[in-house]
């Protein structure tokens, strides 16, 4: 029991207009883990992140955070109306006050120290993502929930941002729940990946998931190659003929068919 989960979702189901957009989802995030949700558009990734945050209440199932869990949230995108004048400093302190030195410190962590007094309206997509991450960090989160943190960021920027997230995990020991479709850059450091298609169609370590037929069907051969190249420590032996998605760390949900 060295790793009490920060957040546990059990049997989470969301129904909208008679359709299950999330179906019977079990998921845990522990301290120091990077848990990645992948899946195509409309697979329910963002919805699941919002359920995890407590922003949406599931129709069935439970969401159990560790008591007094401090969560930092970086939403998918931010459309601040241009009629609202807002500096980076003010943006960081919207829901909490902090000294200038603390603010400069979190901005420094995300490489945005020079933008302290800038208008948020003048930031590029990537810069705004970093500032949003700084706002999440200001809360000294035990759990970071990041919804597509690299949207509108070019490839080099995305790699940088993921490096930063891993570094933050390493230095603070926080857990990370990451929604992403950047299969290629995310996976190297991911503890566990959940492939979502309404329900969890497969989950486990990246390399194991990449060999899951369900994953291969959904994401195609290119994605499989990307995932499969990431090395992972084998703590088990593959026996010939063994069904790969039945090992202890990769589960597969056989009970569903997909549209």
């Amino acid at each position: 029991m060295h790793n009490i989960p920060l957040l546990t979702l059990a049997g989470v189901t969301m129904t909208r207009d008679g359709r299950n957009i999330l179906e019977n989802i079990d998921l845990t995030v522990g301290a120091g883990e990077i848990v990645t949700l992948i899946g195509q558009n409309g697979a329910g990734k963002s919805t699941l992140a919002k359920v995890a945050l407590g922003l949406l209440r599931p129709d069935r199932g439970t969401v159990t955070p560790k008591p007094d869990l401090r969560i930092g949230y970086q939403p998918q995108r931010l459309n601040i109306d241009r009629s609202l004048p807002l500096s980076v400093k003010r943006f960081l302190t919207l829901t909490q006050r902090a000294s200038d030195s603390t603010l400069r410190d979190v901005l420094d962590q995300v490489g945005m120290a020079d933008f302290f007094d800038d208008s948020v309206h003048n930031l590029s997509g990537g810069e705004l993502q970093r500032v949003m991450l700084a706002r999440a960090l200001l809360r000294r989160p035990e759990l970071l929930v990041l919804d597509e943190p690299t949207q509108n960021v070019d490839m080099a920027g995305a790699v940088e941002l993921y490096k930063l997230i891993v570094r933050l995990r390493d230095t603070t020991g926080c857990g990370v729940l990451l929604v992403s479709h950047d299969l290629n850059v995310v996976m190297a450091q991911t503890t566990r990946v959940y492939c979502l298609n309404g329900h969890v169609c497969c989950s486990g370590r990246p390399a194991d998931v990449s060999r899951d037929p369900e994953f291969q069907r959904l994401f195609g051969p290119a994605a499989v190659e990307m995932l499969a190249i990431y090395p992972h420590a084998h703590d088990h032996v593959h026996r010939p003929g063994e069904h790969h998605h039945h090992h202890d760390h990769a589960q597969h949900d056989d009970g569903h068919h997909h549209a």
Partner: peptide, 9 residues
């Protein structure tokens, strides 16, 4: 500025 983030906070 952003409803969801504010509520999450």
């Amino acid at each position: 500025v952003h409803e969801d983030t504010a509520v999450a906070e």
